[in-house]
Computed example of a mutant assay.
Amino acid sequence: MSDAVPEGWRRKRIGELVTLQYGKSPKDIISADGRYPIIGTGGVAGYTDSFLHEGNTTVVGRKGTIDKPSYVEGKFWAIDTTYYGSDYKGAEPKWFYYNLSAVDLRKHNEASGVPSLGRDTLYAITMLTPPLPEQQKIATILSSVDDVIDKTHAQIDKLKDLKTGMMQELLTQGIGHTEFKDSPVGRVPASWEITRLGAIVEAGELQTGPFGSQLHSYDYVDRGIPVVMPKDMKAGRIVTTSIAEVSTEKANELNRHRLKAGDLIFARRGDIGRFALVDAKNAGWLNGTGCLRARLSTSADPEYVACYLTLSIVVDWLNTNAVGQTMLNLNTSILSELPVVLPPKDEQSAISRAIKSVDQRITVLSGKLRSTEKLKKALMQDLLAGQVRVNVDQKESEVA
């Protein structure tokens, strides 16, 4: 933030704005059925029927996590590794919370081991302080953005729960069945085929990625053909945040390891059960060292099989059958024997479409969440520094 002080504002020390009180140990007052939250350095740490303070205020870590302030309303208990604010002097508590959240408190750490933040150190930190009505307006605007963020988080969580329940039901009960039989994943419709992964993979297309002797550290370039490693698999898809790349020439040497849309790639060691479905945008990339690739036959819908692979009983089977003591490993022989229950192709597609529709709603809401969080960050930078001044007489527009 700029060092300039906006007109009508003052630069004040935290010690001029609030009194920081020491929290107390909760060991004698914890109650599983308590009415009031116990606030620790990372947020709610339990509940109690006693309270240490009543009022809207900020709790900030004194030891341990010192850079995650919490805003608390009503009655609460603050543990002994925290401070909580009281006796605000010309400061709106919610505005103070947002302002403190914008401070990099790690820079004020006073310990070489467990992070520690002295009260005098906190008191000496300065804040650009507008008149109280302007503070209240700023807090109202930022709170409205937080409301949208909280509601979006709740919607995403609800959809994730819906997806989990839907997958468990559709992947074991199917659509409209009345007769069932036993299978490696429990009771499934009697008409479903019980097979194994190797039987639904094209001939010769269950492969290990290139060996280390085929792909060296000096083969990687800044821009080229992406090489998918286990670290690049997240939630059944390929993420490119830190994906490595090789030159087109090197990729051509490894042509047999090229990926096609619909391929499934698996982590070969370590985090057994991690996998990704290759999308059309990933086609032509390379299956990397540390991965196994399965190219399914036309009898299997890749989206359905990807959903099936997330079942806990499937992940448990992979971990149970993996080999190795220090680090678990999969190979093509083990993966080939993975039990798979396979509905008719049209039912596979119907199941995967239903689950994908929920995924798409989650994706849309996740995009909205990221945009709103960026908006909040920008607003905090502008409003708390006075770069954008608020009109205290004007109602804020709804953020959505």
Rank of each mutant, 00 (worst) to 15 (best):
S213V: 02
N109L: 05
G74N: 14
K250F: 02
A251D: 02
R119P: 06
R295I: 00
L254C: 03
W77L: 03
P302Y: 00
K68V: 07
L379V: 03
L318G: 10
L335I: 02
V323F: 11
I238E: 00
K234A: 04
L318D: 03
V72N: 09
Q135V: 03
S366M: 00
Y47A: 06
V314N: 08
S366G: 12
D182P: 06
T363S: 13
E110K: 15
K181I: 11
L384R: 07
L105A: 08
V5S: 07
S31A: 15
T248N: 03
N331C: 03
W192Y: 12
D161E: 13
L375G: 06
R274Y: 06
Q136H: 02
G209T: 01
G34I: 04
S25F: 06
K260N: 08
S70D: 05
R106K: 14
S217P: 07
E347P: 14
D301L: 01
L286G: 04
V399D: 09
L264H: 05
P93N: 07
S70N: 14
T289C: 01
Q21K: 14
T248P: 05
N282Y: 01
V148G: 04
I29Y: 10
E92S: 15
I313W: 02
S349Y: 03
T65K: 07
D346I: 05
Q207M: 11
P189G: 11
V44I: 15
Y22C: 00
R293H: 01
A350L: 12
S2M: 02
C307K: 04
V221Q: 07
L296F: 05
M1N: 12
T129E: 05
A354F: 07
A139P: 11
G34T: 09
S299I: 08
D67R: 02
T372N: 02
I272F: 11
K107S: 13
D157N: 09
G74C: 10
